[in-house]
Design a protein around this nucleic acid. Structure first.
Lengths: 136, 136
DNA sequence: TTCTAGTTTAGAATTATTATAAACTAGAAA
DNA sequence: TTTCTAGTTTATAATAATTCTAAACTAGAA
């Protein structure tokens, strides 16, 4: 239950009221040792397994959006017409397999940039992602 | 009319029958001095302006897919739930404005990578894209 | 000129997401 | 502790992008 309080405090510091739905979703997303790529569909299946307390799909959408705005999640760049999210919010990079359309993480120290452009006037860089398209 | 024949031949070499719809779409996409970012919606508006011969939306979808498979177009990676395409199929980079959802090209010599990972076994690198997310 | 596999088309179906508005609840204030 | 209300959740409807379907059309080989 200590963990629950920790999550509740984390949510409060972002101006998010710690409801039981948000706490349950946060537990599912962040209480793991590996970072996690997911879609709304996969998260929904994970949360709403029979026998568990149910959370509506609308709340899963709302919560993921709230967590992105709070900086807890990052949306992944893909060419699919479906949103993919990542619990790893640091600047990091992916292989994108054009055959299987699968994304895999690239360890951040495997990529180094020696030159980065200046952003357009009035804008600043939020993050930077290298996507390496691979094929057979 | 010579241009029309050139396009027709190009299409034939890719196993695409050069129909008048495909030729018209190819003209719109490739007969320009700058590379072109577009969505199905913008391409459709451009093609189906009143007074012009009309092409059905389904054909625009089909043709863009055929052109991607033929290697004439590249799908851009974004976090939008809408497909973006690019007539520039070489490795190149983009700014992605999270506010306006606009993509702009980054001149290739503005980005330099000093370290690139080895691709997974059995795969080779097709191209590499840096996406820099910007915001106000 | 005929024939047919490939292509186009309008419209229906599907999929992901966002909007709506009524019911519920966390937590501040009484 | 109880009351109150702004923030949250929810089922469902609406919207948006894309894919499917099957009938009509056509490029080009025979």
């Amino acid at each position: 239950m200590n963990q629950k309080k920790e999550i509740a405090n984390k949510l409060r510091t972002s101006g998010l009221r710690p409801t039981k739905q948000r706490i349950l979703i946060a537990k599912n997303l962040f209480d793991r040792n590996k970072t996690f790529h997911f879609t709304i569909e996969t998260l929904n299946k994970k949360i709403n397994r029979k026998g568990k307390e149910q959370i509506s799909l609308a709340t899963i959408y709302n919560t993921v959006e709230a967590f992105i705005n709070a900086g807890y999640l990052k949306e992944i760049l893909t060419s699919k017409n479906k949103s993919y999210y990542d619990t790893n919010i640091r600047s990091h990079h992916h292989f994108y397999d054009e055959g299987s359309k699968e994304l895999t993480d690239i360890n951040y120290n495997q990529v180094k940039l020696s030159k980065v452009p200046i952003p357009p006037k009035g804008k600043k860089i939020k993050n930077l992602e290298v996507v390496i398209r691979i094929q057979k």
